[in-house]
Write a protein that binds this DNA or RNA. Structure first.
Lengths: 198, 198
DNA sequence: AATCGTCTGGGACAGTTGACCCGGTCGGTC
DNA sequence: GACCGACCGGGTCAACTGTCCCAGACGATT
């Protein structure tokens, strides 16, 4: 087995855990299974992490941070409708690009809601998620010269609701067309809440 | 220990599993834990169920069927906006009434997506869920004398997206007010897709 | 070359889990 | 009252889990 710096090993193990969970579910992510995926020994695992819990904390934080980053893409251009559509479609591209990420995210969220050590992370990252959505909406409003008819915080939550809801439905029936159609329709709907600046 | 007919025992064990998962998460639902909750012995368990898997199948089917039933309430009255609002608020009442049900549902859905024996159930029940949403929308349209500007199937998916998305967000931050506000806003939005019958 | 922290190999441990089994007990039926 | 299927108690089993340990090997610094 290759000799690898501890920090690099940590990264490898986190990545391996991500792949295992995405492929076989949260329950399958045992220390032995993760080590096998990463090509490491159990001893290496416990040299890098004090416990499995520690691995999970790092994985959760990293994945949720990636979530916020991946969904931060704003596309301002043309009308409000166009901007919202392309922003939501931009989000959907990230889902299609790595569908497993969503499965992992769901599993981790589910787990984090139970685990006191992780609960803070989930809540905090969802707050960041809402914040990102709000910034996106404000950017669009500014770029298109409109203002929102509802409090931006409320609209931000609606945006998160739409992305999460569409993703959840898609995880069950894997209907890409329906997902895209729903996203477009919601974009049109939300655009109706933009009123000309005055 | 009381002497109970096998069928009744099955019911008790399914109920116990539901409670355990709702309170402590899916992973906590071991056969022993479920038996303790139900006040039954391991032997009783394996007399009633051939395997834990069988219990899970029954639990999943039963819970998802309950989901469809609980969300089937339609409230037609007044304008389209009023009807949609009260229908969505009716749904939210069922959530507030038994918040754990949603946690269990999420956990089971998550699990069902991995387990071939359960995948069919999840898919089938979500299809039923979509069908119910469509019927709700058609009832509202008929009752209010309007038609929908988009295909009803697409609107039905949007309705499901909204309820699931709002529920998911609420599971993380438990913000009741935000959930209700989002539901109302979406009701108003969707009502905009109703056009007078011509 | 000696040394020291970093890293690895293989094994061991106690605890838990799903499954199973056997002897026996209950309640109704004939 | 004999019988029989429904039901239970308690114990056992192999498999798997997270965690830990120790002897040793590597590589840079001295």
């Amino acid at each position: 087995m290759a000799r690898v710096p501890a920090q690099e090993r940590r990264r490898q193990l986190v990545d391996a855990a991500f792949r295992v969970i995405g492929r076989e579910g949260f329950a399958a992510a045992t220390t032995r299974r993760v080590c096998a995926e990463a090509g490491a020994s159990l001893a290496a695992f416990h040299y890098c992490f004090a416990s499995k819990q520690e691995l999970l904390v790092e994985l959760t934080a990293q994945t949720m941070a990636g979530l916020v980053a991946a969904r931060a893409g704003v596309h301002v251009g043309g009308s409000v409708t166009d901007s919202l559509r392309s922003t939501l479609r931009g989000y959907w591209e990230t889902v299609e690009q790595d569908p497993n990420r969503e499965s992992v995210l769901m599993a981790l969220t589910q787990h984090a809601l139970r685990e006191p050590a992780l609960a803070g992370i989930a809540e905090q990252q969802y707050a960041a998620y809402h914040r990102t959505a709000r910034e996106t909406l404000e950017e669009i409003a500014a770029g298109c010269g409109v203002r929102w008819a509802l409090p931006v915080g409320q609209l931000a939550r609606m945006l998160v609701v739409v992305t999460d809801g569409v993703t959840l439905a898609w995880l069950v029936d894997r209907d890409n067309d329906a997902a895209l159609a729903a996203l477009d329709a919601f974009a049109d709907q939300l655009a109706g809440l933009a009123v000309a600046m005055g």
